[in-house]
Amino acid sequence: MRKRIFSLAAVLTAALSFALPAHAQEKKTLTVYTYESFVAEWGPGPKVKAAFEKTCDCTVNFVAVADGVALLTRLKLEGAGTKADIALGLDTNLVKEAIDTGLFDKSGVDTAKLTVPGGYQDDIFVPYDYGHFAVVYDTQTLKNPPKSLKELVEGDPSQKIVIQDPRTSTPGLGLLLWVKSVYGDKAPEAWAQLKKRVLTVTPGWSEAYGMFTKGEVPMVLSYTTSPAYHMVEDKSDRYQAAAFSEGHYIQIEVAGLLKNTPNRELAQKFLSFMVTPAFQDEIATTNWMMPVTATDKPLPDAFDKLVKPSKTFLMDPAQVANNRRAWIDEWLAAMSLN
């Protein structure tokens, strides 16, 4: 009982201390909404925070939600009154919806010099890293990985793959768009055939990748950069990405400036900082995505061994936003056939 009272007291104190006016503003605070893995102890968050704070005499305050989708939802819930100065971690498929909220303003960052495959250009959102979707396979159990999306679709149904659900996850949506880019109107037929190789469809990336690393399936939908993690951190070449001859669909992560920020100058400075080596140096080995500019530190050797897609697919965000529902329904119908 005593403990409970103490806890209650703690909660009350916390609530009260918050109610008091913030102490005098000797230092500006930049509030960045992002996703959890960005601010994790192994993520880029702690390092880029330290690097930026050295240059700005300010405090970077990260507020982390589950993922990019939750980030956009959070902004929609908060509307114009959001405390965020910057939203970091949306991807190109969310960009259209994000712009439609009317909460974002032009970044003022020159993104012309960035090297993002697929040629993504936007004056509102600043791309800060990217990764191509890829089928990652277990070299111990799969000796002949598919060399194209066509081979994946038409291959041996006893060699299974785990994919993610486009209704609840961004990689799932990525594969949907990838198949659509390659197969166009024939996408439902492709899905009906691929279905035989799909062991199961998980709600998110974690479930699928967990099943894969536990040896349940030889293939999983992930990123071309996933093997780099295993090569660098686990010192293992076991998991590799399959290069597909048609090309790979890309996921580009972007950050944007909130229109109502009282710290516009500081926020713009942060966005510019994001495409400098100080930020980009950290991305590859902490976020396990590809940097968008040249880095000061060379990338680990493992990154040289990664699949370099011959062609990049990227649909216009507006096209994705307009067709997403119809394409998901199409996917549902094809994948629910017996």
């Binding site: 279905k195 799909v198 998980t202 994948m335 629910s336």
Partner: peptide
């Protein structure tokens, strides 16, 4: 249901 259900059916 999703993980063990084998597909969106």
């Amino acid at each position: 249901v999703l993980v063990l259900g084998g597909g969106p059916a």
